[in-house]
Amino acid sequence: MTDARHAPGRGLRLYALLAYAYLYGPIAILVVYSFNQSKFGVAWTGFTLEWYAALWDDRFVREAARNTLIVAAASTALSTVIGTAAAVGLQRYRFPARRLTEASLYVPVVIPEVVMGIAMLAFFAQAFAWLNDALGFGWRLGLATITIAHVAFSVPFVTLTVRARLAGFDRRLEEAAMDLGADEWRTFTRVTLPLILPGVVAGALLAFTLSLDDYIITLFTAGPGSTTLPLRVYAMLRQAVTPKVNALSTLWVAVVFAALLLAQWVGRPPRAVAA
């Protein structure tokens, strides 16, 4: 919907300016204070990198960061593969229980996270109790259960993203590939995958960010020794206020910005093809 005569009016433009200030103001404040010498006050007392150094020295933060990255990488890889396959299957084929599978994709959207979290906690606790009893395993909550949970809530987003891309896909391109001698696998790797890749990358990034961001479900599926960064941040917020959190936040924002720019660059739409 674009048309010079319908361009946003002055009132609307002013509102938008304020809205963006509202969105970015708090983050800007965090970033600024991460470089402030004063530990408690609001007043600016001088520039320092001391909080970043303190952060680096914090063994718990480093371990939490490592855990977070392990979980995010593993759950993203799994979600992307499972989710992309499902998108292709749901878009292309009819089979029993298709409707049910499709409906279950929306479960993470319509069910509050805390409910999913406790349900998984109860499930893992119960399942591990039985399995450990019956088979003598020593399974307990940890990075693996966090990863499983993260895949469960992020994989539908991958599927929905890839599917949106597949919906606009011209099936004749695949027919053309087959006509030119490519079997089904090579048709997928040489034609289908490259063309839906922006959707797959976007889905993977979504899964990665959801995993990085998640606190609630992680809280219920984490065990001793598997503290992730959000869990650590929460603990820090409950303890004394320290500008270390500002430093961590600033780093986090920087990483997210970089990742989004990268995603933007990778996912840029291909040049339009006529007809």
Binding site: G89, L100, T101, S104, A149
Partner: peptide
Amino acid sequence: KGLLLVGPIAFWLGLFLLVPL
């Protein structure tokens, strides 16, 4: 083919989301 492609997600969502609920 459809079942092979969609099986993993159905398994995952079923076992780790629907069963727990």
